[in-house]
Amino acid sequence: MKQPLGLILAGGLATRMGGGDKGLLQLGTKSLLAHVIDRLRPQVDGLALNANGDPARFTDLDFPVIPDSIDGFAGPLAGVLAGLDWAAELGADRIITAAADTPFFPRDLVARLVQASEGQAHPLVLATTPRTGEDMLKSGGRKRINRHPTFGLWPVALRDDLRTALNNGLRKVVLWTDKHDGREALFEAEPFDPFFNVNTPEDLHRAKELLEHS
C-alpha cells in the first residue's frame, strides 16, 4: 500500500506572534516550514501546503499551495478538508497532516498513525502524548494525554461529512473525530514533547535552544 499524501497546515492567523506566517520564521539555518518539510517529505507520497492569502509568498516550494474552501478561518478542520479534496483529485484515499509551526515532530509519525488505524473502515487517528507536570496539575489529574489535532491521519471517504459539519458550524477537531470513532497514537514526550509548537516569541527562543541540543 502506498504511503498517504502529506498536508502541512499553515492556515492560522498567528495572532500570538503578531500575525503573518509563523512557518517562515527562521530557526537555525532555515525556516520553521523547511524543518517541517524535511521531516514530513520522506514519510509521505506527496506534499501540499494549506495556506490562505497570496500563495506567491511560497513560490519557492515545489508542491501545491491550497487555501481553505470554508470562509472565515474555520480552524484546522478547514485545512484538513482542503487537503482531503486535493487528495481526492489525485485518487488518494487518505492524508497525513502536520502543523507548519512544529519543527520537532516524530520522524516515524506516519508509520505510527497508520499502524494505529489498522482495522478501521475509515482510517482516522490523532497523535497524542502523555500529560506531565504542570499539564497534569491544570487538569486536576483527570486528563492523562494531550491530543494534537493538527497531527493526524484522515480518510478521503469522510470529506463530504466533514464539509457538512464545517458548514454547520463545527470547529472543534475532537468532536468530529470522536463522532467517527477516531483513534489515538501515543508518542513519548521525553525529553520534551515532540509536538511542541511555536506560538509566541518565547516559544521561538525555546525552539532555538532545543535545536542546539537535538
Rank of each mutant, 00 (worst) to 15 (best):
D135Y: 11
F195V: 13
P130F: 03
G141F: 12
K143C: 09
A88T: 09
E190N: 11
T128P: 01
P149G: 11
R39D: 05
E212K: 14
A34H: 09
L47V: 03
G119A: 07
Q115W: 10
N199F: 07
L170G: 01
H148W: 09
L27Q: 04
D60N: 12
F187W: 09
D161H: 14
T59L: 14
D135Q: 15
R57A: 07
F63A: 14
A88S: 11
L153Y: 05
K30G: 08
S69I: 15
A127E: 03
D160R: 11
D71R: 12
P67Q: 11
T102H: 13
Q115M: 11
P194D: 06
L124Q: 07
D181G: 14
W86V: 09
G12T: 06
T102P: 00
E118T: 05
K22C: 03
D108S: 07
L5M: 01
A99W: 05
M17D: 08
V125W: 01
G46W: 10
G28K: 15
N168F: 03
D108Y: 02
L49N: 02
T128C: 12
G79Y: 10
D21M: 12
T200S: 15
P149F: 08
G20L: 05
A116R: 11
W176N: 10
V80W: 09
L13G: 02
A74T: 12
L47S: 05
A165N: 01
V173C: 05
A127D: 04
L33G: 02
R144N: 11
L90V: 14
L24C: 02
V114G: 06
L124S: 08
G20W: 09
D45W: 00
S214F: 07
V44G: 02
D161G: 05
H205D: 12
A121I: 15
G75C: 04
N168H: 07
G91E: 02
P64L: 00
N146D: 12
E202K: 06
A92P: 00
P155D: 11
G140T: 07
Q115F: 12
S69V: 14
F58W: 14
V173G: 02
L124I: 12
R144Q: 11
E134P: 02
V125F: 01
A189L: 11
E212C: 04
V80L: 09
L61E: 08
T15P: 00
A92H: 12
E118Y: 01
A34W: 00
L84H: 02
I96F: 06
G79C: 10
R41L: 13
E118G: 07
L166E: 01
S69W: 05
L126Q: 15
L175Y: 04
E190D: 13
A98F: 11
K2I: 03
G140K: 03
A207I: 04
G140I: 09
L24F: 00
